[in-house]
Design a protein around this nucleic acid. Structure first.
Lengths: 187, 187
DNA sequence: AAGAAAATTTTACAAATGTTAAATAATGAG
DNA sequence: CTCATTATTTAACATTTGTAAAATTTTCTT
């Protein structure tokens, strides 16, 4: 997924301000297993996935909890860092060799104050991410683990082959044994 | 909480653009029990709470699930309506006689395209709401019902006296009987 | 203040989910 | 291809949470 498509999918933007945005973007590659963002660290950059799959997880006292999966076109970002300049929740691990568009946070903030179209692009970016986060919250509050498993299969069809079921179980908020029971019941 | 304090708490903004924003704001009052926003309906306005407490809930096939409580300074808003012009999830019920600042969505969108400071104020607004929503999601994913009950007491100390425990239980994602057990264990 | 209604807690039991460990299946290295 | 390693499923049992109903407490009305 190329940069034009990604920027436009956030919000349509004229060529001139888009060219400015793009000039602050650079392409970076990392191998499977690489940690792109680190929990408890204030991250300086945000990323958009050109190619690849990633997962976000946090370590608790007892175990590791996966709370998000990202794919082509998705933003990989610590919102706490981006918005509040504070350490974030997420470790982001690459589930395959991946390619990203990287933007520096400080430079982006500067652009927001200089170009109204870029400011509104940034506004739409936050708004879109907000809708997605709200949808995740609603999903957790209103749907069972089994329903959310179906959702996950639908939104990330290739994921189940590539990710350990223990990660998916923690994403669903259940144990791996429970997930096995859910899967068994679907056959 | 007055309008200046609310607007500034979203993001500091100079007097001129703030005056413009304020000129599009009007004060409205409604009694306890009033439904301010309606699920499955595209809402035309957003509100900020000057005085009062509200709760957001959705009806499922079986029952009613409360998923948010709002207090002074909070935005009462259907994000789906505000951002995507689509019907939202939330019924918003007033838990006491309340006073709001109302802004019309269409007019606000127009201002975003005309004034860069207002565009960036709107960006910060979405970003702040995003952080709050993310915090709610993290809370649900990483904390037990008992811990979330403590959080709720801390964030909304006056709430427990004013809201039925069945609403709080559904907010926590447990039954009222379980909540009673949790409360009993804390004494 | 008394009685009725509503809200909350408690009880007893059922159902669902977690825990631990063993069995089976899948993956990868040599 | 075979063996060793890792991942997943299954089984047995313990614990937690839900359900339904009764008991108690609180709130509201008169």
């Amino acid at each position: 997924m190329d940069i034009d498509e990604i920027l436009d999918s956030v919000s349509l933007i004229h060529e001139d301000p888009k060219a400015i945005l793009k000039s602050y973007t650079k392409e970076v590659n990392f191998p499977k297993g690489h940690l792109l963002l680190h929990a408890q660290k204030c991250e300086k950059s945000i990323y958009f996935i050109k190619k690849g799959i990633v997962r976000a997880y946090s370590n608790t006292a007892e175990n590791e909890v996966t709370f998000w999966f990202g794919k082509e076109g998705d933003a990989v970002i610590s919102m706490k860092s981006y918005i509040a300049n504070q350490p974030g929740y997420e470790n982001i691990e690459l589930l395959e060799n991946s390619c990203f568009y990287e933007m520096n946070n400080t430079e982006l903030q500067k652009l927001y104050n200089e170009h109204i179209e870029i400011a509104n692009w940034g506004r739409k970016f936050a708004e879109n991410e907000l809708l997605k986060t709200e949808e995740r919250l609603i999903s957790r509050q209103f749907r069972t683990a089994s329903e959310r498993y179906d959702e996950l299969l639908k939104n990330h069809p290739h994921l189940v082959q590539r990710v350990q079921l223990s990660h998916i179980a923690s994403y669903l908020g259940i144990t791996q044994v429970s997930l096995s029971r859910i899967r068994a019941a679907k056959n």
